[in-house]
Design a protein around this nucleic acid. Structure first.
Length: 422
RNA sequence: GGAGAGAUGGCCGAGCGGCUUAAGGCGCACGCUUGGAAAGCGUGUGUACGUUAAUAGCGUACCGAGGGUUCGAAUCCCUCUCUCUCCGCCA
């Protein structure tokens, strides 16, 4: 959501921000609507004041036993007038909100211009891209050969874009999730939280998944949504709150299942478990004072990177350009792991600073001196468990199709060092 | 799923059509008092929008949420949400 007062104060800046997103200007028409809104509001408040006065007069007159027929008639007329004024003010407000709700967040000054992912900027790369003396396989070839990655059964019972992991591969996924949680809670001060996987409209709207991205998520018969990411329940948990300055920063992490309808990605990544309707992700969310969010963004991204480093997976940090930055984000770093089988860098984390964009939508504030200010919210994957597993399988694969378990994970795997065919 | 009770300011709690500008208490802040503290006394104590240079004033709205009745609603009516008690079912 956007600040109407800021728009009014500097319409040109508002349009300039939209232009960076390659969107048309709207400030002029919004400023006009806002003038109408305020005029209507002034009229309404004037009439409400009159109603208050009249009601008081009638009350006093009745107590004295005087006849109030005449004033009551004036009151009745006023009531109708107020109803009309109220309807008009609401209608203008709704028109403004409908436009504002659908406008993306303003980009941070440090975000590079650009059209799509080709204009993203690689910030740094960590770890060596491995070379193989044989032809590296893709994760699904490895997994199916091991007999531990079962797409056929999943397809039978659920459809495409689902998988059943078996045996030590199922355990590997579990191990990765535990390892991520332990790292973030133990070393980075995140509070572990288990969350509802079904949420209401308000939570989805507050985390900017509605109204624009309704078709990307699954909706239930009883009017709830399957969470597309743990970000939704974690962030929306402070919805409507006024937080004390001492309670910030608030850092939360959850290991949750996520659900995506993947409408509109037909034909993309159809093979394997890169893009599923259901996947596990360790999510990081921070709620911080406005002046802290930039530093928090770096800190959060470092937390996510640390997991990749411990697992010995080569990755790079990418700063998304203007055209590739998501709707709610002011600035986003993606972490991309190297997939030897695919010979490609693939996203395993996306860390965003939304600044006050979500906070405004869900009305989450903090106390500051005599007043309140909107908090800043950040979210990042720390990390996408399924995709990290894919990277791990491909990076640690051996010529015979076995997979070496990275040292950091062995305590979580009962000491297992190599995954071999079942 | 069935039956019942409830939701009021940071917290407790009264109010159940107009004298509410939401009583009273607790907490908190500031001041007085004191050698110092406690106690005591006094004053203040929410959010949003509008107006404004202003986080000063002034105005409007807000008693779980949304509708309705009325000249007037915390108070009456309807719908919904959540909490509690009991019953049923159940991992």
């Amino acid at each position: 959501m956007h600040d109407l007062k800021a728009l009014r104060a500097d319409p040109a800046a508002f349009d300039a921000a939209l232009a960076r997103r390659h969107l048309p200007a709207v400030a002029e028409s919004l400023v006009k609507e806002d003038e109408q809104r305020r005029a209507a509001l002034a009229e309404l408040q004037e009439a409400q004041g009159q109603r208050k006065g009249l009601a008081k007069e009638i009350g006093q007159a009745k107590r004295k036993g005087e006849d109030t027929t005449e004033i009551e008639a004036r009151g009745a007329a006023l009531r109708d007038q107020i109803a009309t004024l109220e309807a008009r003010a609401n209608e203008i407000q709704k028109r403004i909100d409908d436009v504002l709700q659908r406008l993306p967040n303003q980009l941070d000054a440090s975000v590079p211009d650009g059209k799509d992912e080709n204009d993203n900027v690689v910030v740094h790369q960590r770890g060596e891209v491995p070379s193989f003396s044989f032809e590296a396989k893709q994760h699904f070839e490895l997994g199916e050969a091991l007999g531990l990655m079962d797409f056929a059964s999943a397809g039978k019972i659920a459809g495409s874009r689902f998988v059943m992991l078996r045996g030590v591969l199922a355990r590997l996924e579990r191990a990765l999730g535990q390892f991520m949680l332990d790292t973030h809670t133990g070393e980075f001060g995140y509070e572990e939280v288990t969350v509802p996987l079904l949420v209401n409209d308000a939570a989805m709207y507050g985390t900017d998944k509605l109204p624009k991205f309704a078709e990307d998520s699954f909706h239930t018969d009883d009017d709830r949504w399957l969470i597309p990411t743990g970000e939704v329940p974690l962030t929306a948990s402070v919805m409507g709150d006024i937080l004390s300055a001492e309670s910030l920063p608030r850092r939360m992490t959850t290991l949750s299942t996520c659900f995506r309808s993947e409408a509109g990605s037909a034909g993309r990544d159809v093979r394997g478990m890169l893009r599923q309707h259901q996947f596990t992700k360790c999510e990081l969310v921070s709620v911080v004072a406005p002046e802290e969010s930039e530093a928090e963004h770096e800190r959060m991204t470092r937390a996510a990177e640390t997991v990749l480093e411990r697992l010995g997976l080569p990755f790079r940090r990418v700063l998304l350009c203007a055209g590739d930055t998501g709707f709610g984000a002011a600035k986003t770093y993606d972490l991309e792991a190297w997939l030897p089988g695919q010979q490609a860098w693939r996203e395993v984390s996306s860390c965003s600073n939304t600044k006050d964009f979500q906070a405004r939508r869900m009305n989450a504030r903090m106390r500051k001196e005599k007043t309140t200010v909107f908090v800043h919210t950040l979210n990042g994957s720390g990390l996408a468990v399924g995709r990290v597993m894919i990277a791990l399988m491909e990076v640690y694969q051996q010529e015979d199709g076995s997979i070496i378990v990275p040292e950091a994970l062995r305590p979580y795997m009962g000491g297992l060092e190599v995954i071999r065919p079942a």
